[in-house]
Amino acid sequence: MEPGGKAFENSVLLTNIQRFSLHDGPGIRTTVFLKGCSLRCPWCSNPENLSGVPQAYTKDGLDGVYGEYMAQDALAEVCLRDKGFYGEKNGSWDIKNAGEISSLPGGVTFSGGECLLQMDRLVPVCETLHRNGVHIAAETCLFVQPSALGLAIKYIDFFYADVKILDETRCREEEKGDLKLYLSNLGMLLDSGRPVAIRIPVIGGYTDGAGDRRAARDLMEKYKRKILKIELVKGHNLGEEKYRSLGMPVPRYMDVDDRQMENYREELSGLHIPVEICRI
């Protein structure tokens, strides 16, 4: 049965729940990796989260399945297990500058794949988490229906929004994405006033060219008062084994060295938005 069918009405399709997660938002978090993505980025390191249905795989001679439908209440229960490590709600969560991020509590982060594709099913989970005082973050590429983003703005407390290929043709051909939809959603998200950090994957041959960097800078310039911080994320090949287990070709792309990352940061420095270089 396809997801969305009756049997899955109260379920969320996910591949992993990672507790004690330290790199997906403020504090100590539980990160939920949802399966299914609206983009096909050639450098993707989570190929198991591309397809929106469970997938068989073979690894080290053993068979398995990527993807599990988990009931909403069961997912909320798992997310609440580490509530004691999320910390207390400390003032308002609607922060206005990067310096305040460390004052936010830990909590739950929805990642993927593109987590907002299942936003309607995440609503009851979010409601349970909020009833328990748990902070919620989402990592999104923003290539989703505006209605899904609207729901997310209502329920998600902190966003990591991606900036990837900003050329309309290349976006369509290389990522299978609709740039107009993305730009419209980015505007909608930033205008909503929700706290947003921007993540820019810096991938050799895809997003590291002078034109790519200039386009990203211009976009950030436009919204600079509404962006808490920018994270420049260096590509990695941690997904290789997963590609092999799915019988998919392993993507190859050029390495971006530390000097180039520093140069990129320098180029963005005039925006007066804090810029961090992340290696994971």
């Binding site: 100590i28 004691g84 490590f85 460390s102």
Partner: peptide
């Protein structure tokens, strides 16, 4: 790499 968050973890672990 995660010293601050490890301190946070330890302080919260005491409460657990």
């Amino acid at each position: 790499q995660n010293r601050d968050k490890f301190v946070m973890f330890m302080m919260l672990a005491i409460r657990q």
